[in-house]
């Protein structure tokens, strides 16, 4: 923040304060109106998805926007959800509905990735922030440069690596998790936080007899909660919504992530009726939206406090 290009002197002379406050008052209403409109646009697709998911087939065919009272005589078809789950079918191995199995897959893969990323990132970030060792600078650049390698460049060879004759991870949880358990973004963000912790704390801990590992776990990690939470939440979203890779390395419906299951349902030869498609979409979206509502202040905080130092 060295110098700004603002020269205060160059700014125009004063305007009358009274006029300002009056325009401000009516301006405020306009502002609210505008913001509400924008929020509605942003939320509308969700509302449409939800509404469509409980429509009757006849209302979908006739393109009725609101087929329920007071404008229509239909009732919400909550049965669409069960019908959609039924149409997706059962898992041959466990007998569970495939949708449930895919939901469990997604939850499992997401949790493993989030934990994995955080553990590897905290460890690496600690080394970069707190320890001295030969090759530190070079290794740090190595880590950062992975941010510059586009996913699409590594996608095909990485997929081939999953095939038989190589790692033979095709159609396994390993393929869905292991390649994503390290994150340059995570390392970088957490390192930034670790670097801000005063060195004195470490010396004090040393006197108390704590080693590096204990210091890392008991002092650094709690102090860097916002960064760690941000990393966790963002990886949660990314992992939960993963589609491209998952579609490429799984072909068993009982190994699908839900996004792949959804796309599969949409393109199925059974012919997914719009209302059923939207019921599945709603079920795919709902868990993450609920999570977001409960954690939204951490998202904002995470983005705000970790700022843009990356």
């Amino acid at each position: 923040m060295a110098n700004t290009s603002v020269t205060v002197a160059a700014i125009r002379p004063a305007a009358r304060t009274q006029r300002v406050s009056r325009t401000r008052h009516s301006g405020r209403w306009a502002l609210y109106a505008l913001l509400i409109l924008i929020a509605l646009v942003s939320l509308f697709p969700f509302a449409w998805m939800l509404m469509t998911s409980v429509k009757d087939l006849g209302d979908v065919i006739q393109l009725r926007f609101w087929p329920w009272p007071p404008f229509g005589h239909s009732t919400p078809q909550w049965g669409n959800y069960a019908q959609a789950i039924n149409q997706i079918g059962l898992d041959d191995n466990t007998g569970l509905p495939l949708f449930v199995r895919q939901l469990l897959n997604t939850a499992f893969v997401t949790v493993v990735i989030v934990l994995g990323v955080n553990i590897t990132s905290i460890m690496a970030a600690y080394a970069f922030a707190q320890l001295d060792f030969p090759g530190k600078g070079a290794l740090f650049i190595v880590v950062l440069s992975t941010l510059m390698i586009p996913d699409d460049l590594t996608l095909v060879p990485r997929a081939v690596m999953m095939f038989k004759n190589y790692l033979d991870w095709y159609n396994t949880y390993l393929a869905l998790t292991v390649p994503f358990m390290a994150s340059a973004f995570g390392i970088f963000l957490i390192r930034q936080f670790f670097m801000q912790v005063p060195r004195d704390l470490f010396d004090a801990a040393r006197i108390d007899g704590a080693g590096h590992i204990r210091y890392m776990i008991q002092v650094m990690v709690p102090l860097s909660r916002p960064a760690i939470l941000t990393v966790a939440l963002f990886h949660f979203i990314w992992a939960w919504n993963e589609f491209k890779w998952a579609q490429l390395v799984t072909s068993n419906s009982n190994m699908y992530m839900i996004s792949v299951g959804l796309q599969d349902f949409l393109n199925g030869d059974g012919g997914a009726q719009t209302q059923l498609a939207m019921a599945v979409a709603t079920m795919v979206v709902a868990p993450i939206v609920v999570l977001y509502f409960f954690t939204q202040q951490y998202f904002t905080e995470g983005i705000t406090t970790t700022g843009l130092k990356g």
């Binding site: 553990i119 590897t120 990132s121 460890m123 690496a124 600690y126 080394a127 970069f128 320890l131 001295d132 060792f133 030969p134 530190k136 290794l139 190595v142 880590v143 992975t146 390698i149 460049l153 590594t154 095909v156 060879p157 990485r158 081939v160 690596m161 292991v178 390649p179 994503f180 358990m181 390290a182 340059a184 390392i187 590096h212």
Partner: peptide, 27 residues
């Protein structure tokens, strides 16, 4: 300290090497 550092870095760096750098060559 260096050994500890390498130990701490190993998982992340190895994963990045194997699943991000190596695929470039392999590709």
């Amino acid at each position: 300290e260096a050994i500890l550092a390498y130990g701490l870095l190993a998982p992340a760096v190895l994963l990045l090497l194997v699943f991000t750098f190596f695929p470039v060559v392999f590709g």
